[in-house]
Simulated assay, not measured.
Amino acid sequence: MDDIDFGCTSCGKCCHDLRLALTIAEAIAWLERGGQMELICEAIPWPVEPEPGNAQAEYKRARSSPAMSGSLPVRISIVLAAAFGGACPNLHADMRCGIYEQRPLVCRIYPAEINPFVELVPENKGCPSDAWQGEPLQRQGMIVDATTVELIGQSRRANQLEAPLRMQVCLDLGLNDAALANEGFVMVSPDSDALLTALRRLHVTMPEAQTAAAQWTFVSNRTGTLETLLSVGATGHLAEPTMAGNARYHGFFPPS
């Protein structure tokens, strides 16, 4: 793999039209500043536990919560995302960050990837060509910048430890629709005050039995997908052009 150097040029391209995955503490701070949030939900069919040594399955399991869809065991992956169109509400006209010292982990880590199964590819980033020089960032496929390595570790730990808490937020808000993993997302924009209240009253832990008993419904824009899910005991429905409330379905493939 290529060696990669990086030096931020403060172009601001990475601060526009985004959904930033936040920790719970970051989400509370974002809402308190008046920002908007989305809950992004996907469901992974999980009829049996994978064999030991399946690294990708272990990664997904650690960052999701058990639940049911009908009689089908599933795992629910939920992202607390700061959502904005155009410039980030904290971005100044000179392309400087107004909350630089308190900016989210995901911003501190960029342009490195948090998911260990996603390769860092400069061409996939919004940074200009002259940003890919400066201090060593990656060598032989491994991130070598010590600060970035530590921040990635913090982000991964928070994602894992907070998975049941994100589930609790959804249950508290009455949210239980999810897209099939790798096919799309159900994206919900809850009332900001209600979400902030739910985040503030989170328990430290939530019994796994409570989440495992929760019923979730698959949403898909593909008839074949829905028929397959229903055939194995899941509950689901086709995505509506306009879903109820503040929810919408974002599919990766055309409807069929």
Rank of each mutant, 00 (worst) to 15 (best):
D177N: 11
K60V: 15
V79T: 13
R201M: 12
G245W: 03
A131N: 13
D145H: 10
A83R: 13
D130K: 12
E101T: 11
S129E: 14
R61A: 15
E32G: 02
K60P: 00
L161R: 14
P136A: 14
V118I: 13
Q138D: 03
A131M: 15
C107T: 11
C88G: 14
I76R: 03
A43P: 00
G34R: 05
T9C: 00
C11D: 07
I78Y: 02
V48T: 15
E123M: 03
S10V: 08
A55I: 00
P116T: 12
L196H: 10
I44T: 12
L199F: 05
S231M: 03
A213C: 07
T23R: 04
V219C: 03
P122M: 10
G70Y: 08
L230C: 02
D193V: 07
L230T: 08
T211D: 10
A234P: 00
P136C: 13
C127F: 15
H203T: 10
L22H: 04
Q154P: 00
P190T: 10
Y59E: 13
A57E: 15
Q56M: 11
T223A: 07
C15Q: 06
S231H: 05
E58D: 13
C11Q: 06
Q215A: 11
L105D: 09
T148Y: 06
G251S: 11
Y100V: 05
T225E: 10
L196E: 09
L180E: 07
E32T: 10
A62K: 15
F185C: 06
Q36V: 07
G174I: 10
A82G: 10
P241E: 13
A244W: 02
E227R: 07
S192P: 04
L226Q: 02
S64H: 10
A25I: 07
S65K: 07
C41Q: 09
P47T: 11
G34Q: 13
R139Q: 14
N176Y: 14
